[in-house]
Nucleic acid binder design. Structure first.
Lengths: 216, 216
DNA sequence: TATTGTTTGTGAATGTGAGTACAAATATCA
DNA sequence: TGATATTTGTACTCACATTCACAAACAATA
């Protein structure tokens, strides 16, 4: 029933479907290795790294091996070049500009958050719908009118952070998709409906808190 | 185990090991059903709920059935009583007081976040280490000295939200454990080491953003 | 050089979760 | 009442993810 070319390509290119869970862990590795790089650490073994991240060594080795053989047997992984490799894999080499939607308390906190730089992200512009907030300064940026979201296309910004109330999230998401955005980090407690080509990651703080009492 | 909780639920929990993924989804169901309850919706089918949450109907049925048979065949799930059941399961009946550590921008945003009330959470007190911030008013609360974290034991607060820089996170976590805290929502990009009896959930915003370019 | 100790990369085994299919239960309507 | 449509609960199957176990590769040292 299936096409033989697919199989052949799979064999020839040693194609493996990379688990989503592996992708989810890659930024962990990138951050940890970046810190080690700053400390002038040359190499690190999967055992040491696993200790830091509370993971099992074989997990780390398998994750990294999906993308090639970065390590050296008897030695470990070379910190600097592995950082570069992971950056390439995650498409985080070079600066990634992101638009921030929502200039409320959460949006303001996100705009000032220093933790994005490890991954090469920068918040390039801030939007809000409230006339009171438009024109206001947040750090070095001026809040723009959310009605002008379509300018993102010209500016080639394809990444957005959505920090608006749940009621506004879906309509914002649609405007972002219209503006050519390809990835959305949704910080509102809502389930966004977007075309399949657009990737959404939702962080719901209250929901994360919601599981804690169960385990206590 | 606790004898005062619903006996039937405890019995069911003995015989089935409930998947962590199921627990993770329960707050989703709780939120969605709470909204439906506000709209005076009497019952909802797994199909309708799945459509809202972008899940498969059998997934929802299986998740709920771990805790008993809440639904009625041919009808669906009674909204009101299922909400109450899930609250009981997640130990979210009654108000859950949480301490917020860190009165920076993110902490301030968290303190004012309205989304906790659906689950019965309330931020009961705010702590910081910076002398400048101690004594400051945030909403109706006064920022307390993080050196006094041990007062949480007396106040019987067993839940904490950690909104401090990564460098301070581990020492804060240790102080919280010392103060009898049993669950920590960690909002810093750090991997906390705590005794096994303490449950930690970490939300790393930059890391969540870090996977997006890969999929674009 | 030979030996010992360390570490990676990976096939195999194990464990966990998701999807499918269907019987049982209920409502609706002719 | 009988027939049809709807929906739950669950056994079974399949897919995905983690862990184990070990050969291959390298360093260090005598």
């Amino acid at each position: 029933m299936n096409v033989s070319t697919n199989i052949k390509i799979d064999e020839d290119m040693k194609y493996h479907k990379i688990p989503d869970e592996t992708i989810r862990r890659m930024p962990m590795y990138l951050r940890a290795l970046s810190l080690l790089e700053q400390d002038a650490c040359q190499t690190i073994s999967s055992r040491q790294l696993a200790q830091q991240l509370h993971l099992n060594p074989p997990q780390i080795r398998k994750d990294l091996s999906y993308f090639g053989a970065f390590g050296k047997r008897g030695i470990g992984y070379p910190v600097q070049s592995t950082v570069q490799q992971i950056r390439k894999i995650l498409k985080l080499d070079g600066t990634q500009s992101a638009a921030l939607i929502g200039a409320g308390r959460l949006g303001t906190a996100i705009a000032a958050y220093p933790g994005f730089s490890v991954f090469g992200f920068e918040v390039a512009s801030i939007f809000d719908i409230a006339p009171k907030k438009i024109g206001k300064k947040i750090g070095a940026m001026t809040v723009e009118d959310a009605a002008d979201l379509d300018t993102l296309k010209k500016r080639k910004i394809r990444l957005a952070i959505l920090a608006v109330p749940a009621e506004a999230a879906q309509s914002c998401a649609e405007a972002l998709v219209q503006a050519g955005v390809k990835g959305i980090l949704n910080l509102s407690p809502s389930c966004l409906a977007v075309p399949r080509r657009v990737k959404v990651v939702t962080i719901d703080i209250a929901m994360a808190l919601g599981v804690l009492p169960y385990y206590m």
